[in-house]
Each structure stands twice: as C-alpha cells, then as structure tokens.
Design a protein around this nucleic acid. Structure first.
Length: 143
DNA sequence: GCCAACGTTGGC
DNA sequence: GCCAACGTTGGC
C-alpha cells in the first residue's frame, strides 16, 4: 500500500506548528474537526502518513510537515460519537514556507484542494502535488 | 470587518 | 428527500 499525503490546516493563534513541535514524539490529537469530509480523510490515514501543516488566517503558508502517529479514535473534546481524530506530530519544518499565493500562482497546483476547497480543514494531497510543493519548499528529496 | 463559499439543519 | 435559512470558515 502506498503512502498517502494530506494537508492539515490550523490557525496559528489557536495551534501553530511550533506548538506541535513542542509536543515532541507523542504529538497531539488533531481534535475539534466537525466536518464529515475532514473526518473521513482522517479515518483513511495510516501511521506514518505525512501531511503539510498550513497556517490559515495568519501567515497563509505551509510551514512544516506533520506525521500521523495514531490512527483515528474518538475525539475526546466532544461526547458526540460521530467525531474522530488522529494524532499527529511534527516531522520537520520546511526550509522555505510556501504561501497560498505561491500555490495559486503555480499551474501544476491549480487542482489542489487548498485552492479549490478552501474551507476543508483536512485535505488529501496527490503525490504529484506533494512533490511539487516540496520542491517549492526546497525540501529535496521529498519525504 | 466584510463577504463569498459551502456545509449543516430543520420544516415541509 | 428537497430546499431555504443559517452558521462557520477563511481569504481579502
């Protein structure tokens, strides 16, 4: 089974990539998601899957890479059994952040969910998109 | 702070 | 099961 790639969106004033890094190896549960599409994406995640960490509202850029370190489990921040979340930990920051404007300006990334489905907080990323964004972030070779 | 996009809710 | 109203997200 090939590895899948994702994108996690977070407002840095609420939870930033630096905060994720401070959580270390155990990482943090990616709780608070109340959207079926985002939840379904999390259910599909495997241990070791990687995802971009994107700062929304402020920054508007991909600042790092996160790694899935626990499969989807009930979200402890709600009693509603519909909602689940995975745990992620910081994998590494990117050498050069990739801004939303950079992504929009790249024709190869015009189909990216970040552009087309702006409001989805947990998104799939195709292998081609992954490689292209990693190249733009000067993260070579792509992990 | 505004507003467009879009997901969710609830009446019928 | 449709669809209007409403709420939320997130870029600008």
């Amino acid at each position: 089974m090939s590895k899948n790639y994702w994108l996690f969106k977070s407002e840095p004033s609420v939870f930033s990539f630096d905060q994720l890094r401070s959580k270390g190896e155990k990482g943090e549960q990616w709780d608070g998601v109340r959207n079926y599409a985002a939840r379904n994406n999390m259910r599909a995640m495997q241990i070791g899957d990687l995802g971009f960490f994107y700062h929304s509202n402020e920054g508007l850029e991909i600042v790092g890479i996160a790694e899935v370190c626990a499969l989807a489990h009930p979200d402890t921040t709600t009693d509603d059994p519909r909602w689940e979340c995975v745990d992620i930990r910081a994998y590494k920051p990117v050498p050069k952040p990739v801004s939303l404007a950079d992504v929009k300006a790249n024709p190869k990334l015009s189909e990216m969910a970040l552009v087309r489905l702006g409001r989805l907080s947990v998104q799939p990323v195709t292998p081609d998109e992954w490689k292209e964004v990693c190249r733009m972030a000067e993260l070579v070779p792509a992990p």
